[in-house]
Design a protein around this nucleic acid. Structure first.
Lengths: 204, 204
DNA sequence: CTTATGAATAATCAAGAAAATATTCAGAAA
DNA sequence: TTTCTGAATATTTTCTTGATTATTCATAAG
């Protein structure tokens, strides 16, 4: 049996966080392509080669940040889903609006970051797919709550959740933000929410 | 008043069609960037400079083809909308599936064309917007029919049509085709159609 | 043994020349 | 007059090649 490690090892997670923070600043300000590993390392007071003890490569740093960015959206939606003080239909609308606002905010305020996240998602479908699954699970939880509270009557919870997820892609993909103003999008989101909520209220 | 023209002028539209046909062949096989105006012209038995009597520039040829491509989708949907032998709900599902199949077919069989259409739509938002408006009008017609036949009960026809259009973007944008297999998409489309049709049946 | 670095290597980017191509235009053919 | 073309010009792409940057690795520091 191996003896317990007595050596004080550094907290890898903490250093990764530090690196991600430094990288985020640079990526936002100068873009992914224009920031060098050496710069990120310098910001962290370490050498470039040492970065590779914490991340496989530069793209993985970008991927971690992209995951973070998508995770923030998930967190915002999760709060709405768990806020049981309003009815499920209203919360579904709020979720869709939250998606829209998250996307719109990033597109208008952090275009370089969006550009990077977009590029990384292009090559790493797994990140997109796992994010989508994660949002689908939140929707499914919301639908389940709605069913239990009598707000909804649904045949197939996960199928409905996935359908809603697909229906809201336009609010999630930066790509489409140029098609309408925020105000127009808000109206569309509202109309879609109304339609969906209505559709969830009857058994098929 | 101007006298009637007696000169036999060539049918400009016909020649434009010929040019578009030749360009389409080349673009599909070799891609937009790799085909030259000289090649297109040679295929039509004319000089490159003569092309400019029929199209402003190369990009306009691409734009015309992109418009054509989107127009074909519109035509397929229009046929479904006008086929009043089935009920409106069923036809809405068919419309969504038609969108999906059009996109999927092009992505898998004509990737170079899709790439070109995508690139052109990036710079010419007007083409996308007018196509979307045109599809929205078809949806609106379908909803109106559904309301008249008693299948649907809808507060705001055009708002609902636009919401449905937005909800189906995932089936329309080549972008997303990598997220699922055709079979998975078909199931999602069916589930979404069910949800939407259900939502159209009650007054909000 | 863990942590870290600088030097070495590999991959990518950037600038500029050369070649290919888009576009224009004066004038020929019909 | 209308239709068309070849030569001329303007743009874009391609191809080098030097420089920058990512990544690896042998080895130092603690």
């Amino acid at each position: 049996m191996t003896p317990p490690r007595t050596n004080l090892k550094q907290d890898i997670g903490e250093i990764q966080t530090q690196i991600l923070f430094a990288a985020l600043e640079r990526f936002q300000q100068y873009g992914y392509g224009k920031t060098t590993m050496a710069e990120i390392a310098a910001d962290c007071g370490m050498s470039a080669s040492n970065l590779y003890r914490f991340f496989e490569n530069k793209q993985d740093i970008g991927a971690a940040l992209a995951t973070d960015c998508l995770g923030q959206q998930r967190a915002a939606i999760e709060i709405i889903v768990n806020n049981i003080s309003t009815n499920a239909g209203k919360r579904l609308e709020e979720c869709i609006l939250a998606m829209l606002h998250h996307t719109h905010h990033h597109c208008s305020r952090l275009p370089r970051l969006v550009e990077m996240v977009d590029a990384i998602c292009e090559h790493r479908t797994d990140i997109v797919i796992s994010h989508r699954r994660s949002i689908a699970e939140l929707f499914e939880a919301l639908l389940r709550q709605g069913e239990q509270s009598g707000d909804f009557t649904i045949n197939n919870l996960s199928a409905a959740a996935e359908a809603i997820l697909s229906a809201t892609v336009i609010f999630d993909a930066p790509h489409f933000m140029k098609l309408h103003s925020l105000e127009e999008f808000e109206i569309i989101a509202g109309n879609l929410a109304t339609l969906l909520v209505n559709g969830l209220q009857r058994r098929t």
